[in-house]
Design a protein around this nucleic acid. Structure first.
Length: 548
RNA sequence: GGCGGUGUAGCUCAGUCGGUUAGAGCGGCGGCUUCAUAAGCCGUAGGUCGGUGGUUCAAGUCCACUCACCGCUACCA
């Protein structure tokens, strides 16, 4: 079997908010990918952690009158609980506010300096004199200079769609204090990127690196003109790492956020007697990032440039997922469709969402919709009515018995299922779990036809047909188990229960779908999954309704 | 404005290198079954593949134009 070495990361969730179902799209997708790789015998490290720095954290700490570190600890616990609840299992969950990250950031910064990529320049920004901080665009509101709409953010107008500088806003107000900001100038440090242009052209357009729509978009936008310098510093006060050779200046959060991938890996290595170099400086290691489409350019322009300068290996692949809508609309607190991970878990099984997301996700970047009716239908008809029903309608005829000693003639069904393994593997590899579920459910359809034709319930009533009953059920249970092996990355708990039913190890290797089980005892059948109760969805929505 | 993407059945989506009468699931309708978690099976209806033009023996697929929707357009994370 293969023995690839992979390093997989998910985007680091920002510390300032709880996880919601939109976050979970990418985490579940990556977790499925990791589990798939592992069940093929590949060696995977799966790392994540909290993104902690920035103005937002600083402001919140001030408002709550406590140290930022206290918030960090609380939110990290919360995030990790939520991930565990959805069976997203990282090897290590770190933080960008760690010594290991400070070291890694310093290393890359030094390399950028030595490579002559750092330049200084004055930047004039709006400044909130009451809170004493420079205001990023989103912290300023005012009247749109183009259409006159009031209460618009500092960079663009939601009414006319116009773009402008925050200095041009009419009647500007700080969203922090409501005071009128004034213009102030400060030195900022920039990383010049144009030197990386050829490298980034090649890297982003290299086949398999990015989904085609992402590669095309980069090619047609950022990379179609000279790359602008990237502003990587913020003047104090700022919650983050102070720039070692520029006192009073801090690294902008997007400098240290992705470097947090390295730090999280390093923390794990330190605890497990491994060398971080084997993970980030090893050409045999495939680095895979999973991110949302909102942070594409950080990961496809700045990040490769930083890694290259710092002497690290570059990502083999960046997988981008779209946003989540609920019932066709943006998540809304007022309508109760802003669904927090925790609220979901209080009402519904994580398995439902893992399967639903898997069935909606393909290798494209498109947004997916959580439609409650479709959600209910998919889980109830695909999983329960179709797949699990295979076992529940046959296992009871086998209680206390063993599967046939040699696998019976099933008209080539198991063999066809085994042959589908290659297609399923390819789909998992491409994160096309929509295809995985389609192929598996098509196989489940064939299996149900077989059971229908075999009609063990009628055979059971006839004298001398005991062996035929056993044959039909041996086939059905093997087909069932073959499919749960295929779905193990998506539904690990179901796979474990199916294995227990047939006395197998709790986790399967992917190749176990290639050969049927024979002569093993069939344990007592127990419910494998509850159907979705629509009342629970209603309760979840009601629990989520709040003031916007 | 520029760039990128999407548009196929009521809904969600497949559709490979251009190649027979365009597919699946769900939902609808009719029937069968009643082992199973009100599950399953059979049959059936439903599409001028956003539009127009072109290339070709042949176009959902390739090209041009066009319409609609979505996204991106560098210091919000």
């Amino acid at each position: 079997m293969s023995d690839r070495k992979l390093l997989v990361t998910n985007a680091l969730p920002y510390v300032n908010g709880h996880l919601h179902l939109g976050h979970l799209v990418g985490y579940i997708q990556a977790d499925i990918f990791v589990r798939y790789q592992r069940m093929n015998g590949n060696h995977v490290g799966y790392f994540c952690g909290d993104d902690t720095h920035g103005t937002a954290t600083m402001i919140r700490a001030r408002e709550e009158g406590r140290e930022p570190e206290a918030i960090l600890e609380e939110m990290s616990d919360s995030h990790q609980q939520d991930f565990a609840g959805f069976q997203v299992v990282f090897d290590h969950y770190g933080s960008t506010h760690s010594e290991s990250n400070r070291e890694a950031v310093t290393g890359i910064w030094t390399a950028l300096r030595e490579a002559g990529r750092v330049v200084e320049r004055d930047v004039t920004q709006l400044f909130d004199t009451e809170s004493g901080v420079f205001l990023a665009d989103r912290f300023v509101k005012g009247t749109c200079p183009k259409c006159g709409a009031s209460d618009q953010f500092g960079d663009n107008c939601e009414v006319c769609g116009g773009m402008y500088d925050p200095q041009d806003l009419g009647d500007p107000r700080s969203t922090l204090t409501g005071t009128v900001p004034e213009l102030r100038t400060a030195v900022h440090y920039f990383v010049s990127l144009e030197e990386f242009h050829d490298f980034l052209d090649e890297w982003t357009q290299s086949p398999g690196r990015l989904q085609p729509e992402i590669a095309n978009q980069l090619k047609g936008s950022f990379l179609s003109e000279p790359l602008r310098d990237w502003d990587v510093s913020r003047p104090a006060p700022y919650f983050g790492f102070e720039i070692p050779d520029a006192p009073g200046h801090f690294f902008y959060v997007w400098v240290d956020a992705p470097i947090g991938y390295i730090a999280s890996t390093r923390d794990w290595c330190d605890q497990n007697g491994e060398q971080v170099e084997d993970w980030w400086n090893n050409p045999d290691r495939e680095i895979h990032h999973f991110i949302g489409k909102d942070i594409v350019y950080f990961h496809t322009l700045f990040w490769p440039a930083m890694l290259k300068t710092g002497g690290y290996e570059l990502p083999r692949h960046v997988q981008v997922n779209g946003f989540l809508t609920v019932n066709g609309e943006k998540m809304s607190k007022r309508k109760g469709t802003f669904l927090q991970a925790r609220t979901y878990l209080e009402h519904l099984s994580p398995n439902y969402l893992r399967y639903y997301f898997a069935s909606k996700l393909s290798s494209s970047v498109t947004d997916i919709d959580l439609n409650f009716e479709e959600f209910t239908a998919k889980v109830n008809s695909d999983l329960v009515g179709k797949l699990i029903n295979l076992a529940s309608r046959t296992a009871r005829f086998m209680k206390g018995q063993k599967l046939c000693e040699s696998y019976p003639d099933d008209g080539g069904l198991f063999e066809r299922g085994a042959a589908a393994g290659a297609e399923i593997a390819e789909a998992y590899e491409a994160c096309d779990t929509n295809k995985v579920t389609r192929v598996v459910m098509a196989l489940a359809d064939r299996a149900n036809e077989y059971v229908e034709a075999g009609a063990p319930w009628s055979l059971k009533k006839q004298e001398g047909k005991e062996e035929e009953v056993r044959q039909v059920c041996s086939v059905a249970l093997n087909l069932f188990r073959q499919l749960t092996v295929y779905l193990q990355p998506i539904l690990p708990e179901l796979s474990t229960k199916a294995n227990e039913l047939l006395g197998q190890e709790s986790e399967s290797h992917f190749s176990e779908a290639q050969s049927p089980l024979t002569g093993v005892s069939v344990e007592k059948f127990e419910h494998l999954m509850r159907r979705v109760d629509p009342d629970r969805i209603t309760a979840m929505v009601e629990a989520s309704i709040s003031e916007e």
